[in-house]
Amino acid sequence: TTVKVNGTKYKFDTPEEAQKFAKKAADKYNLKVVVDGDDLRVE
């Protein structure tokens, strides 16, 4: 599972880890998590 934040992709072994990271990033930058198929985007 990958998470894309500000054009940078981060790869995670499990969707749970990816979800946690995406949520933290979204909170930090005051953005929202967008599900894109198997991957997540923070925008």
Rank of each mutant, 00 (worst) to 15 (best):
24 K>A: 14
20 K>F: 10
2 T>I: 13
12 F>H: 01
9 K>G: 06
13 D>T: 11
37 G>N: 06
40 L>W: 08
8 T>V: 15
2 T>F: 12
33 V>S: 01
35 V>E: 11
2 T>D: 03
6 N>E: 05
14 T>G: 04
22 A>Q: 01
32 K>I: 15
6 N>W: 13
8 T>S: 09
17 E>K: 07
37 G>D: 05
16 E>M: 08
42 V>P: 02
13 D>L: 09
27 D>A: 12
20 K>D: 14
13 D>M: 09
43 E>V: 14
34 V>E: 07
3 V>T: 00
6 N>Y: 10
3 V>C: 01
37 G>W: 03
25 A>E: 11
10 Y>N: 01
14 T>L: 04
22 A>H: 00
1 T>N: 08
31 L>D: 06
9 K>N: 11
34 V>N: 05
34 V>G: 03
31 L>Q: 06
11 K>L: 11
40 L>N: 02
25 A>I: 15
24 K>G: 09
40 L>M: 07
22 A>V: 03
27 D>V: 08
8 T>K: 15
28 K>W: 14
42 V>D: 03
3 V>W: 00
40 L>T: 03
19 Q>F: 15
9 K>E: 13
39 D>I: 14
36 D>S: 07
29 Y>L: 13
38 D>Y: 10
26 A>L: 04
2 T>R: 05
41 R>H: 05
7 G>E: 05
3 V>S: 00
32 K>M: 12
2 T>S: 08
43 E>R: 06
25 A>C: 15
38 D>V: 12
12 F>S: 00
25 A>K: 09
15 P>Q: 09
32 K>W: 08
6 N>S: 05
27 D>R: 11
6 N>I: 05
38 D>W: 08
11 K>G: 05
7 G>A: 05
17 E>L: 09
23 K>E: 11
37 G>S: 04
5 V>G: 01
43 E>Q: 09
42 V>L: 14
1 T>W: 14
20 K>Q: 13
3 V>A: 01
33 V>C: 06
27 D>L: 11
38 D>T: 13
29 Y>P: 05
39 D>W: 09
28 K>G: 06
27 D>Q: 11
26 A>P: 01
43 E>A: 08
30 N>Q: 11
18 A>D: 01
18 A>N: 00
16 E>Q: 10
43 E>P: 03
6 N>C: 15
13 D>N: 13
24 K>W: 15
18 A>Q: 00
14 T>Y: 04
38 D>M: 11
11 K>H: 13
13 D>S: 13
41 R>V: 15
21 F>M: 03
31 L>Y: 08
9 K>M: 14
